[in-house]
Simulated assay, not measured.
Amino acid sequence: MNSEEFKAFYDRYYDVSVKVASAIVQSRFTAEDVTQEVFMYFYGIRERLDVSCEARLHALVVWKTTNKGRDYLRKSYVKREVMYDNDVAELQYRTTESAEAALLGMEKRQYLSMAFENLHRKNPVNFMIFMRVVMEGASTEEVAREFGYTRNNVNNRVLRARNWLLEELERLEKE
Rank of each mutant, 00 (worst) to 15 (best):
E90P: 06
Y111F: 11
A55S: 11
V154F: 04
A144N: 04
Y72A: 12
M106Q: 10
F42R: 09
A99G: 15
Q92Y: 13
V158W: 04
E117K: 12
G148L: 09
T65V: 04
V143I: 07
F147Q: 02
R74P: 00
R157N: 09
E168R: 10
T96G: 09
N152Y: 06
N163P: 00
R157S: 02
Y93T: 11
V88L: 14
E81R: 14
R171N: 08
V51E: 03
A101E: 13
E170K: 10
E54V: 05
H120P: 03
L60V: 01
M135C: 08
L60N: 03
A55F: 12
L73E: 07
Y84H: 01
Y43Q: 03
A115P: 01
R74W: 03
G137S: 02
G44W: 01
G105M: 13
E117N: 06
T65C: 05
M131P: 00
D85H: 11
R151I: 13
Y84C: 07
A144Q: 01
Y84M: 10
M106S: 11
V62I: 07
R70E: 07
R48T: 07
T66C: 07
E47L: 09
A115D: 03
L57G: 02
G44T: 10
E168S: 08
S98D: 11
S52H: 04
V88C: 03
W63M: 13
R171W: 11
N156W: 11
M131H: 12
L91Y: 08
G148R: 10
L91E: 03
A161E: 01
E81F: 14
R74D: 13
R171P: 02
A138V: 07
G137Q: 06
S139C: 05
Q110A: 15
Y149I: 07
E47N: 09
A99Y: 00
D87C: 15
L103N: 06
R80T: 03
S52N: 13
E173W: 08
A99L: 11
W164N: 01
E173T: 02
N152K: 12
M128P: 00
